[in-house]
């Protein structure tokens, strides 16, 4: 059996395009991470999505969809302009939008996590992220009868900060995230950040996992809270 060049060309295109089409039919064609946080396994709100698993790469539209929150509230809280503009902005973009604030205060992904947690009336203990006054106003306007713990938090963690309105240029993930543990970080990176294997073992309460495994996937597999492990590791990385 002989093949001609034009038959080869057609065969290549058919196999590739057809293969992708079939893979799509079986839901095997996935080109990006699903923007779905892990669910809380215990405590207040068990079974609901964990706001502290919101990653910097989530857009405000995705956050609004997953947590079933009106995007106008998010846009108003973080001064993101109109709704259409807010949809495409990513949580990590807040750092650029707000720029450098006094006393090393930062408005970023963690601010969004806390905001969503309070909106959904979930546990915020252990959080220390700052919120712009506009976000605090939205939270109080939505529910003036917040718990004493939340009111104290809002009182001590609000800052007069204003978005500069400029949607930031694309940045390399490693640059924008800095030396921080995020949803993609592997244990080999944590070691590269200067955390020893013993320290990792102490935090996860078990033997050192394979270095090529991501922290997030290990936590999910072993029923650990990713946000708590992440927080503990970040404390060691940035004392």
């Amino acid at each position: 059996m002989k093949l001609k060049n034009n038959q080869i060309g057609v065969l290549i295109v058919i196999i590739l395009i057809g293969g992708i089409y079939i893979a799509k039919g079986f839901d095997l064609w996935v080109t990006e991470s699903d923007k779905i946080p892990v669910k809380l396994s215990e405590g207040i709100g068990a079974g609901s999505y964990d706001p502290f698993d919101i990653r910097g790469s989530y857009s405000f539209e995705e956050i609004s969809d997953v947590f079933e929150m009106d995007i106008t509230l998010l846009a108003e809280a973080f001064q993101l302009g109109d709704v259409e503009e807010a949809k495409g902005i990513k949580s990590k973009d807040l750092e650029s939008l707000y720029g450098e604030l006094e006393d090393d205060i930062e408005i970023g992904n963690e601010s969004v996590q806390v905001f969503v947690a309070i909106m959904k009336e979930l546990d915020i203990s252990g959080s220390d992220a700052m919120l712009p006054v506009s976000a605090v106003q939205v939270l109080l306007a939505e529910n003036p009868n917040r718990s004493e713990e939340v009111l104290t938090y809002l009182e001590s963690h609000q800052v007069e900060a204003y978005s500069n309105g400029a949607i930031p240029e694309i940045e390399a993930q490693t640059d924008s995230e800095g030396l921080k543990v995020n949803g993609n970080t592997t244990f080999s990176q944590v070691i590269d950040f200067g955390v020893s294997k013993q320290e990792i073992e102490a935090i996860i309460g078990g033997k050192m996992p394979p270095e090529n495994q991501s922290v997030r996937s290990y936590c999910t597999e072993n029923g650990l809270s990713f946000s708590e492990v992440k927080e503990a590791l970040n404390t060691l990385i940035m004392p």
Partner: peptide
């Protein structure tokens, strides 16, 4: 095979393409 997860930034589409390219390579 070892940790049941993709390498950072890689998704199942890359695995699908790998399979299709292997198929093409075995053929041609």
């Amino acid at each position: 095979l070892t940790v049941g997860d993709y390498v950072q930034k890689i998704h199942s589409s890359a695995l699908v393409l790998m399979g299709l390219v292997f198929l093409l390579s075995i053929l041609l």
